[in-house]
Design a protein around this nucleic acid. Sequence first.
RNA 1: GGCGCUAUCGUCUAGGGGACCAGGACGGGUGGUUCUCAGCCAUCAAACCGGGGUUCGAAUCCCCGUAGCGCUACCA
Length: 515
Amino acid sequence: MCPFHPFLAFGVKTMNPVRVRFAPSPTGFLHVGNARTALFNWLFARQHNGRFILRIEDTDVERSFSAFEEQLIMDLKWLGLEWDEGPETEGEFGPYRQSLRLLTYRDYTRRLLEKKAAYHCFCSSEDLEREKNTAVSEGRMPLYSGRCLKLDPKESAARIAGGEEAAVRLKTPECGELSFDDDVRGTVSFDLSLVGDPVIVRSNGHPAYNFAVVIDDHCMNISHVIRGEDHISNMPRQILVYKALSLPLPRFAHLSMVMGEDNTRLSKRHGATSVRQFDDDGILSSALANYLALLGWSPPEDREVLSLEEMVPLFNLKKVSRSAAIFDYKKLHWLNRQHLKRQPVEQLARAAFPFLKDEGILPADMTPDLWAWLEKAVGILIEKVDRLSDLSPHFAALFEYSPEKLDGEAREILSSDCARKVLFSVHEELKTLEKVDFAAFGILTKKVKEQTGCKGKELFHPLRVALTARTSGLDLDKFIPLVEEGAELSFPAPLKNCRSRVSEILNYLGETGSR
RNA sequence: GGCGCUAUCGUCUAGGGGACCAGGACGGGUGGUUCUCAGCCAUCAAACCGGGGUUCGAAUCCCCGUAGCGCUACCA
């Protein structure tokens, strides 16, 4: 617990270690907008050898759930944003959950009340609502009237002693100007005549946000408050709390918002918005983090594809953009492709596995042989996709072989003279081969070319259709070894080798007489 | 309504009084890569919100409009 300390009023200047925090409320999944705030805090802490603190703001008892808190923690870890202090790790400035800090808030509230910097308010929410409505209809600012401030202190004390519920309001100056220096926006100022006495403690005893953050940031020794722009309008109220308590101010930086394509706040109808969904969609955490960083920050020398570690020394909070950014899924997908390519095949195979298992393409119990094949296949197929979730159809195409589903274009290709010669020649050659690997395939095509006199399209198109029953797909010299090796392994649905494919299509064509 | 923040290609942005008839990336168009698709490479189109100042000179500084967003809670 952090006791109130009047000395701090004079802002004792020491070596100020960088301490930043990410303070989400556990009221839902980790949203990409919040994730970006967390990321910028993390980057800032890491590059200054500072501490990154996670604090759970669960003072809204109605909406906070521990399940969300657990999810939040998982999502943050998935993104790679490990915290130095917070739930699980703890630390010397805890507890890191607001619901466990009630005594601290109470202590500070008492000080404020004693200094007469705050007062009890007995107004009912109905009264408040009515006053607000009349103010608005008369075109006035809906400020609190200050009715309870005028109450006789004795009466007020008696009502409290009598057990009556009351909120606590901060007494604010009636006029004047307040300004602060924002690290991304410069000087921002407000007219104090426009801020009413805010409730700092609700009548249920829980602190209001604008009070709790100030206390927590101070007690946790936060040096830089980096948060969303939506908090900027709260600054006068928060600064007033700092002043009433004579606490030194940390530095502030307000980040712009993340919007959807239609320039409204990013929400479910724009597509995936929680980091969990991106994981489910086959987006790598490093790609998401990279993309989020690019929303507002631009790395020097056009180095756009960056890992978390690479971003740390390059990041510059003061260069962060002040305007809102629209979330562009296309660019995220492109970036994901870049990150996918940087990934070693072993890792890619591991990352792709869940998607392929769910599609029934791979068995749940993988053997070393299957892993080896998967690595090879993923290494080849990855260049076809932006996301891991897009891998399944490409894998499925390896397994599926259905001459009866031949489309018009494929039949057309098969109907040429060359096609007939190529098919028979390949069929014969395949009989002599034990296994068709990359080298064997080269020799095979050369032989077929000599025997049939067909080359180029005339040779490869029929070959492709014969082996895949499709007109497009993987390069044949990659496709064939994959299929041949896979044919010897046991998958949920077996993979046919080249020889049986060619026999099958020859049979099919013979039966239907369509050759 | 009030207050605050913001404003460069469709999108993310570079730029910080002359180096800018504005650069990069995504996306789009076109061409190349002697099997297809994809990829990759090359190439093209595409922007300083409007109006006033300040200045020899403004995307850049100031003011006014406009628009978007945020806040205006006993939500955070």
